Amino acid sequence: MGVRSCPSLPGPSKDLTDRYFLPYLLPNDETENDRLDVLHEMCLQVLHRKLYLGPIKSPQRVINLATGTGIWAIDFSDKHPQAEVIGCDLSLIQPTLVPPNVNFLVDDIESEWTYERDTFDFIHARFLAVSIRDFSKLIKQCYLFVKPGGWVEFQDWDGHPVSEDGSLNGTALQRYYDEVFDAFETAGCEVRPGIKLEEWFRGAGFVNIHVENFLVSYGVWPKNKHLKKVGAWCQSQAEANGYEGFALAALTRYRNWTRKEVMLLASVARADGRRHDIHSLFNL
């Protein structure tokens, strides 16, 4: 999260039908939409019901990048009725009945932006891992289009799980992430953006940069009540077709796995995820 040192809302950057997209390797269906909404609730649990951490006060123009189902943008617009909120995504999957101050656009955030410079008070993005090819370029664009004194906040993963006691080592769950992330990296996707965000923000010119790290447990094994609740939501989103959906395209297209092999890996990884003796953690 960083602040930039010190007209009308525009539409999409380009006619998307004229663009060539590198393949999007995650699902885009109702099951995935449900998973994204579960992920939203998990994030609210992690942040103790906060939608964002930036010290914004009375934002007038806000953009939510890769808005997905639009749930964050809708919640934000409810809390800030004075703000004009844009949610942009490659797919128009958001609901049609929304607050009057939110507008959803089909747009590719990795293309050149044609919004007015210095137009947004707050730019928010969340969970872009494996979906963005060039985070550095994207964050530089955020710098150009946020107002001087405005804030940009990214929330993202170090996608590789860890275990402080070594209980993840050698498990099917570890193999799942090793295999899948190797395929994503072959496809040119960034799987560990969280640990690089500070570097990218500084390179873009932001000042007053704040980095916060949150542990997200997988499953209900922690004794800590907060981590246990977060872990339950994390497990829920992964089991909502997350294992198969996350792995299928990447492994079949970039590692020549068969569908049956992917489904088997997903099945044994899911079983490991339910074990209380494997203490998996993610850094958000």
Rank of each mutant, 00 (worst) to 15 (best):
G2E: 07
G2Q: 05
P7N: 13
K14M: 11
L16Q: 13
D18A: 15
R19E: 13
L22E: 15
P23R: 13
L25S: 12
L25W: 10
D29T: 03
D29I: 04
N33R: 11
N33W: 03
D34M: 08
V38S: 03
L39H: 08
M42S: 00
M42N: 00
C43G: 06
Q45P: 00
Q45S: 10
R49D: 07
K50M: 03
P55G: 07
I56T: 02
S58L: 15
V62A: 05
I63A: 07
N64Q: 14
L65K: 05
I71P: 00
W72G: 00
A73K: 02
F76V: 06
D78F: 11
H80E: 12
P81I: 08
I86P: 01
G87T: 05
S91M: 09
L92N: 10
Q94L: 01
N103E: 15
V106A: 11
D107E: 10
I109S: 09
E110F: 11
T114Y: 12
E116W: 11
F120T: 01
A129V: 10
A129K: 07
F135K: 09
K140F: 07
L144D: 14
V146H: 07
W151P: 04
D156C: 04
D158A: 12
G159V: 05
H160D: 15
H160T: 14
P161L: 01
S163V: 05
L173E: 00
L173H: 01
Q174M: 10
Y177P: 02
E179T: 12
V180T: 09
G188R: 07
E190I: 15
P193H: 07
G194E: 09
I195V: 12
E198Y: 13
R202I: 10
A204S: 10
I209N: 08
V211Q: 13
N213E: 13
V220Q: 12
W221P: 05
W233V: 00
Q235E: 13
E239Y: 00
N241H: 11
Y243A: 08
G245M: 06
A247P: 03
A249F: 04
N256V: 03
W257R: 03
R259E: 15
R259I: 13
K260A: 15
L265K: 02
S267M: 09
S267N: 12
R270E: 13
G273R: 04
R275I: 08
R275T: 02
H279R: 01
F282M: 06
